[in-house]
Amino acid sequence: MKLFYIYSMLQLNIKNETSRLRAVILGTAESNGPTPSVENCYDPKSIEHVLAGTYPTEADMTKELDAVAAVFKKYNVEVFRPKVIKNCNQIFSRDIAFVIEDKIIRANILPNREAEIEAIRYVWNQVDKKNRIVLPPECHVEGGDVIPWGDYIFIGTYSGEDYPELITARTNMDAVIAIQELFPDKTVKSFELRKSNTNAKENALHLDCCFQPLGRGKAIIHKNGFLIEREYDWLVNFFGKENVFEITKDEMYNMNSNIFSISEDVIVSEKNFNRLNTWLRQQGFTVEEVPYAEISKQEGLLRCSTMPLVRD
């Protein structure tokens, strides 16, 4: 995949998850590094596969990312890739930054992932300085927890006393408050997520691991990903029960909610999501199926590895 560099100012525009995509950062598995030790894993699903000897290979993950790049090319989406850092996992570009409206917000991520931010510096530098946002250090946030949706910004968070002990807790209430202050005209709605360092089926790593809004007024939800039932109920009522596709615990574990919309009508999904993909087609969507089962072993899928920059 050709690496594109930006030579003029980039006019960011992200107001939702489903408007026609024009430009995106797609992660890379090139020089991904060796299989990590258990101590260096960031989530329980990766730990499972390290212990089982089934952690994904660089070659397999590169093929999967190339398949997504080919779909973007088909739909004339401009694709930017991180500069390759030797022996560094740079697949999940949504973790390191995210865009709302015309602003790019740097994620305050795990300290040993700082190098990943430098790999997209060439994109960051082509955004107007006033639209480059670095939150205060006490504001912890990753892009997988932040879902812009018109007049709303949905944010996954965790406020339990054991937050410091949970490597799977990535976004705190300080960040929720800071984002509300950045966008005073929007309603920021936060959701407490279920977290576990040891059980991937009881862990919603990010909001997009248990919830995803789609075009045509539809949404995907996994109830058990939410710690507070009334917050889950609010989302179901917001979209309407008849418009919601409820996924099972196993489907959440396999990342069925972490698909990606190119437009209101076109969705990129994993080829093995048979029940979901059948439902999507029944709702009138065009489903572009890609292999992504290897990347999913790291508890991330299509939304995690893409960071939209411009939508119509």
Results as ranks from 00 to 15, higher is better:
3 L>Q: 15
5 Y>R: 14
8 S>A: 13
10 L>K: 06
14 I>F: 04
14 I>P: 00
17 E>V: 03
19 S>I: 14
20 R>D: 04
20 R>P: 00
20 R>K: 08
21 L>V: 07
22 R>G: 04
22 R>V: 02
23 A>T: 07
23 A>V: 02
27 G>I: 02
27 G>M: 04
29 A>T: 00
35 T>I: 12
38 V>M: 05
45 K>S: 02
45 K>E: 09
46 S>T: 14
48 E>A: 07
50 V>L: 15
50 V>R: 09
51 L>V: 07
52 A>G: 01
54 T>C: 08
55 Y>N: 02
57 T>F: 14
57 T>C: 12
59 A>S: 13
60 D>C: 02
60 D>Q: 06
66 D>K: 14
71 V>G: 02
71 V>F: 08
73 K>D: 15
76 N>Y: 09
76 N>V: 02
78 E>S: 11
81 R>L: 14
81 R>T: 11
81 R>V: 05
82 P>R: 07
87 N>C: 12
88 C>G: 05
89 N>A: 03
93 S>L: 03
93 S>N: 10
94 R>C: 06
95 D>V: 03
96 I>K: 09
97 A>E: 12
97 A>D: 11
98 F>W: 15
99 V>W: 06
99 V>R: 02
102 D>Y: 05
104 I>Y: 00
105 I>C: 01
106 R>P: 04
106 R>F: 10
111 P>W: 08
115 A>K: 15
117 I>T: 13
119 A>I: 03
120 I>L: 13
120 I>D: 11
124 W>T: 06
124 W>L: 14
126 Q>D: 08
128 D>A: 12
130 K>E: 15
130 K>H: 13
133 I>A: 00
135 L>C: 05
135 L>N: 06
136 P>N: 11
142 E>N: 06
145 D>I: 07
147 I>F: 10
147 I>S: 06
149 W>D: 07
151 D>C: 09
156 G>A: 12
157 T>N: 00
158 Y>L: 06
160 G>S: 10
160 G>A: 13
165 E>G: 04
165 E>D: 15
165 E>V: 05
167 I>W: 09
175 A>S: 09
175 A>I: 01
176 V>S: 00
188 V>Y: 07
190 S>N: 08
191 F>E: 01
192 E>N: 04
196 S>V: 02
201 K>L: 03
206 H>E: 10
210 C>S: 11
211 F>W: 01
215 G>D: 10
216 R>C: 01
221 I>N: 04
227 L>P: 01
230 R>A: 01
232 Y>E: 01
235 L>V: 04
241 K>Y: 14
242 E>P: 02
242 E>G: 05
243 N>L: 01
244 V>E: 14
244 V>Q: 08
250 D>F: 07
254 N>S: 11
255 M>F: 11
258 N>H: 01
258 N>I: 09
262 I>D: 11
262 I>R: 04
263 S>F: 09
266 V>L: 04
267 I>G: 05
268 V>S: 09
269 S>Y: 07
270 E>D: 15
272 N>P: 05
274 N>A: 11
283 Q>H: 03
285 F>R: 03
286 T>D: 13
288 E>H: 06
296 S>V: 15
298 Q>G: 13
310 V>Y: 07
